[in-house]
Design a protein around this nucleic acid. Sequence first.
DNA 1: TCGTAAACGAGACGGTACGTCATGTCTTCTG
DNA 2: CAGAAGACATGACGTACCGTCTCGTTTACGA
Lengths: 198, 198, 198, 198
Amino acid sequence: MPEREPDSTPPRRRSERARTAVLNATAALIEEVPYPRLTIEAIAARAGVGKQTIYRWWPSRGAIVFDSLLERSGGADASLPDSGDLQADLSAFLRASADEMASPSTGAFLRAVTVEILQDDGVAQQYRDRLLTPQRSAVRRRLAVSQDAGMLRDDLDLDVLVECLLGPLVGRWLLGPGPLEVDFADAVVDVALRGAIR
Amino acid sequence: MPEREPDSTPPRRRSERARTAVLNATAALIEEVPYPRLTIEAIAARAGVGKQTIYRWWPSRGAIVFDSLLERSGGADASLPDSGDLQADLSAFLRASADEMASPSTGAFLRAVTVEILQDDGVAQQYRDRLLTPQRSAVRRRLAVSQDAGMLRDDLDLDVLVECLLGPLVGRWLLGPGPLEVDFADAVVDVALRGAIR
Amino acid sequence: MPEREPDSTPPRRRSERARTAVLNATAALIEEVPYPRLTIEAIAARAGVGKQTIYRWWPSRGAIVFDSLLERSGGADASLPDSGDLQADLSAFLRASADEMASPSTGAFLRAVTVEILQDDGVAQQYRDRLLTPQRSAVRRRLAVSQDAGMLRDDLDLDVLVECLLGPLVGRWLLGPGPLEVDFADAVVDVALRGAIR
Amino acid sequence: MPEREPDSTPPRRRSERARTAVLNATAALIEEVPYPRLTIEAIAARAGVGKQTIYRWWPSRGAIVFDSLLERSGGADASLPDSGDLQADLSAFLRASADEMASPSTGAFLRAVTVEILQDDGVAQQYRDRLLTPQRSAVRRRLAVSQDAGMLRDDLDLDVLVECLLGPLVGRWLLGPGPLEVDFADAVVDVALRGAIR
DNA sequence: TCGTAAACGAGACGGTACGTCATGTCTTCTG
DNA sequence: CAGAAGACATGACGTACCGTCTCGTTTACGA
């Protein structure tokens, strides 16, 4: 999606100015207008860029939106601290995630990207590879440390545990009754680690 | 969303034939064409119905899609059995849910509805009220029985536990690495009930 | 070109309002803007009409321009008076023609139509059938009266004579050095009738 | 239009290779594609030349087309023979002209140039100066010889007579009902010289 | 003989117009 | 009079070219 790496001639003279203008315009519009109004024409106009420039470098609106998201959260280093207290570390991470998802600006972005993911496998794959997998790997690594230290059940599939931690946040954000609040993160960590059975 | 009960004229002579034809055409198209091709014109043509008839009775494409989903899964009585074995009951329920989400036909439908939910608060509200809340309430009722019987921690917020059970499925279905498989349901129930700590 | 008489269904519900607006807008623009700026979009905007309405009823810009010309010169009854004096009748007719061709508004129209004729055989055919042939026939009929009366050489091909009268005007209008003036019409009639040889 | 003689810097290092390639590509395309497809980009691609090279040396598409026409008919020495028989000399000349206009390749070229003349006064002026005036002067000189010899009426404006000879050809070529045939040339000469009156 | 300045090929840029498609409204005709 | 048919105004779509503007590369002086 970005940079059209595959095939033929690598485009040598792409204008960084135009690329940045498009991604910024997209980010701005995502928060300003309802998603169906985020048209290619609107992006081109807002960016002061020709439509052809957009069509030349991006295959679809979804790709632009995703690139724009990458640009804004690109530097995010996905790794959890290890304070020794697993529950505290997970809570901190999930609270931060919940906070971000609940913020109006990131929220609009995530909603937009999700719409694209649901309709475009290419975007879905990119999202998984570039954002989701790194995030989940980071969580998984932190869990593995604790498991190796004997603090987690040995028979546990860590990938499942990761889902049990992050899934509820996604579910609540996407459909969940009521808004996504930070306390929810703590409660999820509590259930996932200690279980529900008395 | 349907029947537009509020305001103006109560629609006295609505044609049941047209209504059914529209919902069926929508259901058929959802599985046949990519979602952006599910246009109002395509639905009207497929249903053999005038566009105005659609605009008269539904406020948006999302509303049609949602009504169509309601129609197909309307009879589904959302309640869990109580065999006495909570884990078994939850596993059975989650496996059935996972199965349905993974099926191609229901999957396409859910994807479509999710796209609409993300862009249309009206659809989101309807979805919550008519499908989600009943489902979650059913799970919650089953959990409450066990909690009353002293089998679950008293300090537990059952709504959170419901999310911890269903959220991972949603997360996996929506973004998760790899497909949603039935074993995953068992693993989730295991973690949510027993916890991860050794 | 107009009314798409041939084929399939006669379009019964065409909006006369839209049709007239398009033709008027075209006529106005032809005099106001250079011809390459006479775009379909400009016509649609000026006429307050959707582009699709234009594409539905006209196959090309040329067709619109020609229809617009027809509309404005539609009522023109192409027939020459017969005062008994052939030379006077022809002079009067050619002077009127020259006058019209030299006028700024008709001139712009004729230039536009000529451009289209040169690039679109359909328009060329229409132009011949609807405007040119009637005009030339009218001249020819007047000549035939004189020939029957023995006032013109019997061995003369009247079609050629018609061209010898009208052709010089066209040539002068199109390319001719200097503007087309009314005296020129008299001179042409003089040469065509009396010849150049002493 | 060509060589941009006036003003500022005389272009000293213009590539003759590029110039020829452009004119040849234009000539080839004129016969191969409909005129609206004769784009600058198509010419540049066909000629293996950068667009900027074209814009550097020609101000418009019309200028290129005209230069291309000049190049192909440049050597044509516009002068009529004087065999003593005016009618024969004129007939020969007009037949040759008619022949050329009727040929498919010259025809396409003339049509293209005419389109440009109608829309671009610069091209029109160039066409008059470089091609039309020399041709008409040649005819006029031949007529003057005969007039001086007393073979033509003294009161005759020779410029008008020239138009009466060439105009009908132009008219027939441009609009005329039916194709332009060589016999037509003879008939025109006959009328113009002898007149129509018995 | 070798800079050096121009013209060159290539092609990206900000744009306009194209012709098509879908929208949501409106009008006309039919059952 | 509800509903089908479909014309209407609007405006986004993706494509083709426009004319301008760099890029590096030849090419032909003139120092």
